[in-house]
Nucleic acid binder design. Structure first.
Lengths: 224, 224, 224, 224
DNA sequence: TGAGTTAGAATGGCACCACCCGTC
DNA sequence: GACGGGTGGTGCCATTCTAACTCA
């Protein structure tokens, strides 16, 4: 599986998303060796987190892959934490590389504006079925920003993951410790892990359908 | 007064800080014309907010100032919302332009790492007394991230504003409406405005001391 | 059987392990004469314990074996309490001498780091199937260090004995008296002995499989 | 203040003692720069702990001091974590360097034997008033090993710190985190810190008396 | 329309309890 | 067998925020 995690704005949980999706895939596939997270972001946050503790998969910087391309070829699952504000060309390159693209955004009013530009770029490439937006850092009830943003995005036809990532302190603690939220001893951290588990399941199902488009189309077409 | 608001990471309240400090200065000086906010960030978030509603000062993009440099010269107070991850050269240019630099960061573990790099760049320029860090989006009690981050920053000798900006929904609402939190009808928004008021007071006092270093030294020396 | 007990750190129960494995083998083989414990550690702790009381096997210092090599040749079972922080060459020598190597470590965070270096040395010698780690001084419930360390070691693929040695006062008392925990009048000491009994059984089984690799392979192959 | 922490056996809390005494001195003197911990032990455990987190003083390896001797000269307080089983010559060198020597040992029967050899070496150097033994990892009541060991050591005239360091899980947690027990959020960790605080106070008082032997003798002699 | 009240969620500190160990 | 102590897990509570509801 080749997944790119991309977003125009920073501080939206991009590294957190890349790390936890990689962790989900590593847990599902069962082996450390088969998952590779490539950190392309200049801030190198994913690499920093990896150095602080122990993640159940390998994290490398962009330059390591450039020197040793077999790293990426041999990985069963490849997650790319893409740099912050990519140009249209960079988006194009990433979409060629990846099977799917995950775009985390926070439920903020300004985030939507920038998302529209990204959608234009992707549409121009004819890859509208290959990206999906993930709402992250969603505050709890009775905050309305989460449902509001979801409604707005759905209204304008942005494809969304069915599960949101909640704003939970556990994600901060996990980044500090250099581990997945799953591996924190805190009870509450398990709820944080549930969010990414659901997203991971959805991701796997989605990639499967992307890989067999005609079969999928035939099935859903036949059911209609 | 010439102030640059800068940060390496995105999503830390940079535009919010630039807008509200400009708003504070506009309120103090009493007239709209005398304050200019220059949005240098490629995301143009400050400009977007300005277009949505009505801010009590003028907001222009970088290119407008390039075309019409008198804009900046004539402004009594100049606030620059600097682009996201500036290079050392860009930092140098900004420090030449500005009297002081405000660096907003969120109380996150990873933010500190990147801050150290910024400090190195500034130290190399010999402008250590010209920057100050502002903690933004600080969650309320019983969260410990705020006090924790403050303690860590003080320990390693980072200059901090004495007041933190709390994480309040009012800032989101204000950005959506295109106004200052001061101008929201919500009661809670007033508390958000208080935070920036205190920071603004501190800023004014700081710039005054920066402008008259010998006077300041003489005064404190004479008072002893 | 030729067993080397080795560890990089001190105070991890190395002598205790050497003594009790020797005691187990002496009990199984039935005669005192057939088991020899060679104390190579400069602290000579095993020899000290032996001199204090009565162990059911012979304990000699390194120099005695150098003077009289037939001692080692004639022993049916040879246990070596190796010196504390061996160099790569010493490890190589020991691995040539021994059929298997037992590495006791305490469940401490720092112990793992040093263990990785040892693993590298052993891997370089191509003897990865000839060493096994024994968790010692494992505190009781509700301490989590024991299970935690076991999980970490298993995750990174370190071969472990299935049974841990608990942290029990009986081991201290036995060392003071110069006897095996088996020979203490205390009831609780029996539980301490059980731990080493299980490890001893595992050791015997392991050495058997090491000696007849093809037979073992054939047997498991034939069972299919 | 120049302190050497030394012991013949490993795993007795030598690094923990060096780190926490350094931490105490850093806290008393109030500044990070004035305390230097030199890790001479080949296992480099103190350096490892320092790299994991943030200690309020500088930790360097032996080689760094060799390259840059001014490091040690400029430090107000110098703590040396000495290598594990030092020879008589190494002890001599250390005693020449240090004002006082702290010898942590665990309350184990075997530890006493090795301690006697160390005492002989020190006596031969005529520095009997410059070393003191610290009981570490003392288990709680109703274990008797702590008081027992203290009684034995006092009987044979070994100088002891008046306070023992208890065996508390907090020390393991602190080493994992790379911080002092003082900086752990756990309540129980504060009790661990109290132990070293008392030892630190005793150490400061002791060094003061060592520096002004006649004054001290005069004062205690005069009764004033 | 504006002020006060209330519900829900999240974090973190506190108290309590289970469990094991060693001694008397 | 009782007792004291350490550790870690569970449950409870205080505090804060937001948004909806009620009331004047």
């Amino acid at each position: 599986m080749r997944v790119v995690v991309m977003s125009r704005k920073g501080g939206v949980g991009k590294s957190t998303t890349a790390i936890h999706l990689a962790g989900y895939l590593a847990g599902v596939s069962g082996g450390e060796a088969s998952v590779l997270l490539v950190d392309t972001d200049p801030s190198r946050n994913a690499l920093r987190v990896a150095r602080r503790g122990r993640l159940p998969f390998r994290v490398v910087g962009e330059e390591e892959v450039d020197e040793n391309p077999s790293l990426a070829r041999e990985a069963q699952h490849l997650i790319v934490d893409m740099r912050g504000s990519p140009s249209a060309e960079e988006i194009e390159d990433a979409m060629r590389l990846a099977e799917v693209m995950v775009i985390p955004i926070m439920p903020s009013g300004l985030a939507l504006d920038t998302l529209l530009q990204t959608r234009r770029d992707i549409k121009r490439l004819g890859r509208e079925d290959r990206y999906r937006v993930l709402l992250t850092a969603v505050p709890p009830w009775p905050y309305r920003r989460g449902p509001q943003a979801r409604a707005q995005l759905e209204e304008i036809g942005i494809p969304l993951f069915g599960t949101d990532i909640r704003r939970l302190e556990a994600f901060e603690a996990a980044a500090d410790e250099g581990v997945l939220v799953r591996d924190l001893p805190d009870r509450r951290a398990q709820r944080a892990w549930e969010d990414y588990t659901r997203v991971g399941e959805e991701l796997v199902e989605w990639v499967r359908s992307v890989r067999t488009p005609d079969l999928h189309a035939a099935r859903s077409g036949g059911g209609a």
